[in-house]
Structures are given as C-alpha cells and as structure tokens.
Simulated assay, not measured.
Amino acid sequence: MLIENIPDTFISTPKENQDLFVHDFKMTTDTLKTKVNLRMNMFSFLQVGKKQVHFAGTSVAVNKDQSLLIRKGNCLWTELLDTERIYYCKLFFFSERILKNFLQEHILDPFEHRKEAPFFTIENDQYITSYLDSLSSINDYPSLLSDKFLSVKFEEIMLYLIGKYGNGMKSYLRSLIVDETSTFKEIVERYIYSDLKLEEIAFLCNMSLSTFKRHFINEYKVTPGKWLIEKRLQKAKLLLEQTQLSPSDIYMEIGYNNLSSFSTAFKNRFGFSPKDFSKSASV
C-alpha cells in the first residue's frame, strides 16, 4: 500500500517554509485505511460523509456534524461517502512554527500543562459554517494577499475554539508543539482485537513490516502472528464460556473478518469448533 504524504500531494507549487495551506478535498468513492504521513498539523472540517482515523494508540470516527484537529504524524484514514455518493471536507494545514507564534502571543505559559492526544474533536456549529464560507473566498485573492488572509483566518479559528472549549483546547494546542509518541507495546496492545493488518500496525509504529517483526520478537519472544492469534482465540474462548454470545456474535469483536476463518482457527487451537464449544459451555 502506498503512503500518501499530506499535504504535499495537494500542493502544485510548493513554497519554501510554507506555514498555512487550505485544500478542498472531494471524493466520489470510498477509501479504506489509506496510509497517511501527515507532515503538518491539520484541521479537517468535514462537510459531507464520514471519516475514521486510526492513530498510534487510539482511533476516532466523525460524521458531518463534527470536525477534527489532527496532530502531524502517521495515521490511517477511512473516508466514506454519504447517501448522495460524495465526500467533502475542507482541510486547513498549519506549521508548528506559526502555532508557536500564536501560543506565545495569546496563551500564558504556552509550553506547560500539555494534553497528549493525536486529535481533538470539534462540534460543528453556525459560526464554523460561516467561517468556512469566508475561508472559501481565499481563491478570489492574489497570492500575497492570500497568505495574509490565511494568517488572519488561522488566528480567528484558534481564538474561537479557545473561547468555545477553554482549557481543553489550550492544553491540546500546547501538545502539538512536542513530539510525544505512544510506546511500542501501547500501540500493539491497542489493536489486538482490531481488523488492522500487521503492515498497518507497523505503519502506526513508524516502522517497516520487517523492523516491526524484529522489534516484536525482541519484546514478546514470539512472532506477532502467533501472538495475535493466541490473544484473540483466548478472548473468544472466554466470551463463549462466560456469556450467552454465539460464535457469529463475537468473531468481528476479536478481529476476524468472517466466521469461517474464525471457526477454523478456533478448531485448530482447541480441537473443536466454537459452535460445539459454546454448546458444551452452556450445559
């Protein structure tokens, strides 16, 4: 799977030390788990459709009533069309340098009390709708005036969100100027029961698949494939023993894409099918 370097792929004529950039992103087909190397912090103002983002250690899903402020770094994007068969969001990228300048000007002790998180969820409202309408007019301005216009609009949205979310937003903005990452084990164990492939988990760890496997074996003393299968099947066994759930109820919860592959893996591990085990456990 190719890695999208964002916003590089959207910029036709890059500028040296570009601090701000706006892009209207539209699609007419769904995209699932696109590997993204986000090189700048970014607002994703969702207008139409749904978006899910996997980060190292957590994930978030939003609809058209919400937007995201996302920290730069590696992540996986899933973007889904709505009933009108379209996806549209306005992306507003900003550099760490311009954020530092803003924090130093507007926030006392800008580097203290950081909230470490890869995203901040924003509830869309009438002000944000009007703000996006005004942002769209940037295409009508000459290049030099456009840069100045964007600087004003960046400061405007930042001050508005601080007013709306208070200390929570201040804390999040401070966290964007430091390079905080989850530990290897935190990332791996966050996705034990997800449907992410090893290659995708490795990407979130900022590693190639081969490096990830070597690091995994050093950490856990077993290959990642064997470790994940054992963890998932042990959880399945526990669920079938202690709940009234059937095999068809749990296979997706523990990271399998279909019931058949789950049943085969379960029988290979425990010697009988999950359906037979479920019956015996209920007796």
Results as ranks from 00 to 15, higher is better:
Ile157Gly: 06
Phe262Thr: 00
Ile217Gly: 05
Lys231Phe: 02
Gln244Pro: 01
Val222Cys: 12
Leu173Val: 06
Leu259His: 12
Leu245Gly: 00
Leu135Thr: 06
Glu219Lys: 12
Leu259Asp: 14
Ser263Tyr: 08
Asp140Leu: 14
Leu238His: 13
Ile162Gln: 07
Arg190Thr: 15
Thr223Pro: 04
Leu239Cys: 07
Ser194Arg: 02
Asp147Gly: 10
Leu259Glu: 15
Thr183Asp: 14
Ile192Cys: 02
Leu233Met: 13
Thr223Gln: 14
Ser151Pro: 00
Ser146Glu: 14
Asp140Asn: 14
Glu253Asp: 14
Leu135Gly: 02
Ser143Glu: 15
Leu198Asn: 08
Leu198His: 15
Tyr251Ala: 00
Ile229Cys: 12
Tyr160Met: 00
Leu161Gly: 02
Asn139Ala: 10
Leu150Ala: 11
Gly271Asn: 08
Ala202Val: 04
Lys235Ala: 04
Thr183Ala: 11
Asp249His: 06
Val178Asn: 10
Glu180His: 13
Thr183Ile: 06
Leu161Met: 06
Thr183Gln: 08
Phe270Leu: 01
Ser248Tyr: 09
Ser208His: 07
Leu135Pro: 01
Lys231Tyr: 04
Ala202Asn: 03
Gly168Asn: 13
Glu180Phe: 14
Leu204Val: 03
Leu161Asn: 02
Leu161Gln: 02
Glu186Phe: 08
Ile138Cys: 11
Cys205Tyr: 02
Ser137Val: 11
Gln242Ser: 11
Phe203Val: 01
Ser246Gly: 03
Ser146Trp: 05
Ile254Met: 03
Thr211Ser: 15
Met252Thr: 06
Leu135His: 10
Ser143Arg: 09
Thr181Glu: 15
Leu245Val: 01
Leu161Phe: 10
Tyr141Gly: 03
Leu161Val: 02
Ile229Asp: 08
Ile187Gly: 00
Ile217Gln: 07
Ile138Thr: 03
Ile162Thr: 10
Ser146Lys: 08
Ser263Leu: 02
Ala202Ile: 00
